[in-house]
Amino acid sequence: MPDFIPLKTAIARSVTDGCSVALEGFTHLIPHAAAHEIIRQGRRELTLMRMTPDMIYDQLIGMGCVAKLIFSYAGNPGVGLLRRMRDAVENGWPVPLEIEEHSHAAMAHAYEAGASNMPFALMRGYIGAGLREVNPNIKTVTCPFTGEELAAFPALRPDVGIIHAAKADRQGNVLIEGILGVQKETVLAAKTAIVTVEQVVEDLQAHPNACVLPGWTISAICEVPGGAHPSYVHGVYPRDNSAYVEWDEIAADRDRFQAWMQANVLDVDDSVFADRVRGLV
């Protein structure tokens, strides 16, 4: 059974300088509150994994927490580019950022391989793709039955996997509904898993085939209402699309970015998230 502890405690005991962390959520259920806690605790030299690094990774990168990023699509969905990440890649600000770039299919397979305790993942893919030339972790294996050449790449095994969900029950079992992304794979691939939830309930009321992560696969449950904002929680609050549009302007300028982070992340704690979604419901 996981520990029911404050987010601050969960991050402090699991996320250390230099460790690898996957904060996942495919547009949906992105653990913003957890990312902000990592920033507040001043972690450095992290290796971050995420299929779609968007606003939270832009923030972690811009605040100098990240040494290396493993990813497959770095954009502000429907809005544009990630300006803090670009500044790090193009100008090394505030610190240089090493990147390991994959396709979505490969990242998804690599989390699955991690969850399956396999050393690598394989797929029919990367055919004619330029990533093969620039990412030395994309290699080829030959099918022993047909002789076909397939793409291979290392499994993802983050030290810490962090996701958000609508609810957990009192035994720490977590229900994931809506767009599932790689939430389950992230928890099962990680050495330690932290789940932030909107609320802890008596009964998950899950149907027989629901996506439920048993409590014994999770290290800590942290109750943070609104903790995915401006991402969303299916059936609880919608995506705050205007916040993503605003982010494009905030992140465009280093000073404005730092002032925003000071006021909205460094000077507050995770209790502010509940207010941020109050007007959305």
Binding site: Y73, M85, R86, S103, G128, A129
Partner: peptide, 14 residues
């Protein structure tokens, strides 16, 4: 210019 990257496209294409 660092653009977002491929996402699903490399495998969709084949």
């Amino acid at each position: 210019v660092r653009l977002p990257g491929g996402g699903g496209a490399p495998e969709i294409a084949v």
